[in-house]
Simulated assay, not measured.
Amino acid sequence: MTRLTRRAAMTAMGAALATPAFLRRAQAAEVTLRLHHFLPAVAPMQSQFFEPWAKEISDASDGAIDIQIFPSMQLGGKPPQLADQVRQGICDIAWTLPVYTPDRFPVAETLSLPFMVRNAEKTSVAMQQLMDEFGGGEYRGMKPLAFHAHDGGKLHTRGKAVTSQADMQGMRLRAPNQATGELLAALGAETVFFPVTEMVVGLSNGLIDGCCLPYEVVPAFKLQELTQFSAAPAPGARGLYTNTFALLMSERSYDRMSPDLQKVIDGASGAALSQRIGAQFDAFEAFGKSKVEEQGNTIAEIPAEEIAKWQEMAQPIYDSWAGKLGDDGLDGAAVLKRANELLDAA
């Protein structure tokens, strides 16, 4: 090696050693995590939450963690399989709904019972706390990153608004989950259940007359063009229902990470993340409602006295759920009582 070549090599080595470790690390990701979800890429959840959250984790890890997002079930399978895909290693992180696998995650499903919702942020805070207290054993092989809920669902229908039990008679409605479907059936509706991704076909071909969903879903599926009426409980009452969500990570993927990168994941998950996603969903809700209003659709109000009657009719659903929790070794009455306390206090 010539003197000039040796000097250049020493200079390059010195520059490399002088470069901060985080800059050297940032040149290439150490860990690539695949995040799988069921909504289309145009959904606000991807552009306004998943993408910024992934960037925050990349920045916090100095580029060592790269989260690649796969919307619309691009890694294969159906939405009800997302939790198992995390456990099996098909993906590293998944965003899913416990109600897509009824009775499998009963504590996580509890706030999906009728009238167990305030707004999305407050309900998400309550759900995270409920899971911390009662749901620790439900997601074996998975590391829950956050639990949350959407705002109370509304009745979106064709032909007429639904503001009373009488209006419900004979209507074919897509139910958002099993428990809410039981309530709608008790009120006189004919209910069907399938994932929200199949709802557009059901409305377009006349299989259903309407659905029960929050406003936040409206823009992604152009629901304002498929229905003409929306109805919600009078202000002050709890919402008709919410669906609960789980953001899950594979324990194996987490365990393979170095302790400093695990700290990054830990810092970007938990109660603060649940509250953040809930607040995000409240913003999505306001935007979705604006699309219904822009379309010129009718927005009706379900009177408080009607909602009170519907809540009484839901009591057998709560009793049955307490029994299911009991079958899993939990005190079902205590779980429901605590859920209501957290909602009232949120």
Rank of each mutant, 00 (worst) to 15 (best):
E51V: 15
Q129G: 07
G153P: 03
D66R: 08
A18C: 08
S230D: 15
S61Y: 05
S269C: 08
I302D: 06
L33P: 13
K222P: 06
V99H: 01
F115D: 00
L82R: 11
A175C: 05
R238P: 00
I265S: 07
K309D: 14
E306L: 09
R276D: 02
E51P: 12
M313S: 10
A9F: 08
D331R: 02
D260A: 13
G159P: 07
L184H: 02
W95N: 08
E305Y: 06
N177F: 01
A300M: 12
M199V: 10
A231Y: 13
K263C: 09
L342F: 11
T227S: 07
W95P: 02
G267E: 04
D344I: 04
F193Y: 11
A271Q: 04
D319L: 12
P44S: 06
K55N: 09
V162T: 04
K309W: 15
R158M: 15
Q311W: 06
R158C: 09
P80E: 05
H36R: 06
Q74L: 11
H156N: 13
M168V: 04
M1I: 14
P98W: 08
H148C: 12
A300G: 14
P176D: 03
M199P: 05
Q46D: 08
E293K: 14
A108V: 01
D319F: 01
G135H: 01
R158E: 15
T2R: 04
A272W: 10
A246T: 02
I90Y: 14
G63Y: 03
M13I: 13
M45Q: 03
A12C: 04
D59I: 06
A94D: 07
E138M: 01
K222T: 09
Q169T: 10
A231T: 09
Q128N: 01
E251C: 13
E133T: 04
L330K: 09
T163D: 07
V196L: 11
V162S: 03
L226V: 04
A60K: 06
S58V: 12
L75H: 12
K289Y: 04
Y241G: 02
S164L: 09
S253C: 13
P102S: 08
S269M: 05
P214T: 00
A15M: 15
F193G: 12
D319Y: 02
G181E: 05
G181C: 10
G159W: 08
V292A: 11
T298V: 14
W95Y: 11
I93T: 05
P114N: 07
D331N: 12
D282P: 02
N119S: 05
M13T: 06
S204T: 10
T96Y: 00
L113Y: 00
S250M: 05
S320V: 06
Y215F: 15
T191R: 03
F115M: 02
A18F: 01
G136F: 13
K160P: 14
K337E: 07
M45I: 10
E341A: 14
A175S: 15
M313Y: 02
V42A: 10
L155N: 00
L173W: 05
L343Y: 00
K222Y: 11
I69H: 02
D209N: 15
F147A: 03
N340W: 00
K337L: 13
I90F: 08
A12Q: 13
K143V: 08
Y254Q: 12
D331W: 10
A8C: 14
